[in-house]
């Protein structure tokens, strides 16, 4: 890909050769350390080639392990392999290296196609992004916010000014820790308490639940949750709707669950809450400290407000939707 040489001086290193389902805590830690070293050595930007399936898990983990980076850290993948003439790999790589080399956004980001067309890419914040289609090129969407920027071959257009700016200093804090005995449970109607019990009995120290609606599970599970929290297992609630906050005060269910020790995780995405809990428990056994870490926004995994239009716009090349809505509903 000769175009890459026009963008930057690119040095490459193969850390692993795995499909993304085989990425996990060991790889997060190794990656975070390697990036920390590069930053110290004065690099201007980092690109990480990654499988797309769990790219948002890795992005979340790196956002916590590499705090306050001075340069852009860009994860990139492709939905079609590069042996296919219409592969998105080349354009994604060009976009990602351009972002890493020249953008002013010093955060952990995912860079993938905006629309399915070969037109522009979007830079998504690492803690607010999710793969939303099994095969589409524009599979990544920012959830609960709007993407950070639009990126073309020769231009980066920020969509917001709320981001960390590139710096020349080399100060970065690497916290490469992860507790592997953390699980995520996707709630379904008629879930039985033994699901939770078996996790607890197997020594799990943290559980993230993706609950229904505002953050709910059914009554039969209550005793199991109470038993778990009493045994010192940290349980956090997120929402299956992905968009929106956990609100456990609206219904009795929520209040009952909080009384049993479940902690609402604001508007953290379930996968992000999972990696954050693993990362928090990796650092301390003190559950109050874990709670403090979990609920303190570090990399916009929790946001104070949700833009009214985030759900509607900038989600794959249809700003026209907003114009349309304005026309229909004044």
């Amino acid at each position: 890909m000769p175009e890459l040489a026009d963008v930057c001086n690119l040095a490459t290193e193969k850390l692993f050769a795995v499909f993304s389902e085989n990425m996990g805590p060991r790889q997060y830690i190794e990656l975070a350390k390697a990036i920390g070293k590069e930053i110290k050595n004065g690099i201007d930007g980092i690109v990480i080639g990654h499988g797309t399936d769990t790219m948002h898990h890795t992005a979340g983990a790196l956002a916590f392990m590499i705090q306050n980076p001075p340069v852009p850290i860009v994860l990139v993948g492709s939905q079609r392999s590069s042996d296919r003439p219409s592969s998105d790999a080349a354009l994604n790589l060009i976009h990602a290296t351009t972002a890493a080399a020249t953008s002013d956004i010093a955060e952990v980001m995912v860079c993938m196609f905006g629309p399915t067309s070969d037109e522009y890419g979007l830079l998504h914040r690492g803690t607010r992004v999710r793969k939303m289609h099994s095969s589409y090129r524009s599979t990544f969407r920012t959830i609960g916010d709007i993407p950070l920027a639009m990126i073309e071959r020769d231009r980066i257009t920020p969509l917001t000014d709320a981001y960390n700016r590139r710096r020349t200093d080399r100060e970065v804090k690497i916290t490469p820790f992860f507790e592997e005995r953390v699980a995520m449970v996707y709630y379904y109607p008629n879930m039985q308490p033994d699901i939770i019990d078996s996790l607890v009995d197997n020594g799990y120290r943290g559980i993230v639940i993706a609950g229904t609606g505002l953050g709910h599970v059914n009554k039969p599970v209550y005793p199991a949750i109470e038993r778990a929290t009493k045994k010192g297992v940290a349980i956090y609630m997120t929402v299956q709707t992905l968009w929106g906050y956990v609100h456990m005060f609206v219904y009795d269910t929520g209040r009952d669950l909080m009384a049993r020790g479940i902690v609402p995780a604001e508007n953290m995405l379930p996968e992000v809450a999972y990696v954050k809990l693993g990362w928090a428990l990796g650092q301390t056994d003190d559950l109050d400290e874990v709670r403090r870490i979990m609920l303190t926004p570090i990399a916009s995994e929790i946001t104070e407000r949700e833009p009214y239009n985030g759900y509607l716009i900038y989600q794959g090349g249809v700003p026209e939707v907003e114009a349309f809505l304005k026309k229909v509903h004044k």
Binding site: V7, C8, N9, L10, A11, T12, E13, K14, L15, F16, A17, V18, S20, M23, Q27, L31, A34, I35, E38, G42, I43, D44, G45, I46, V47, I48, G49, H50, G51, T58, T97, A100, A101, T102
Partner: peptide, 8 residues
């Protein structure tokens, strides 16, 4: 600018 690409 210098950019480092990590392959995973």
């Amino acid at each position: 600018p210098n950019v480092k690409l990590f392959g995973t």
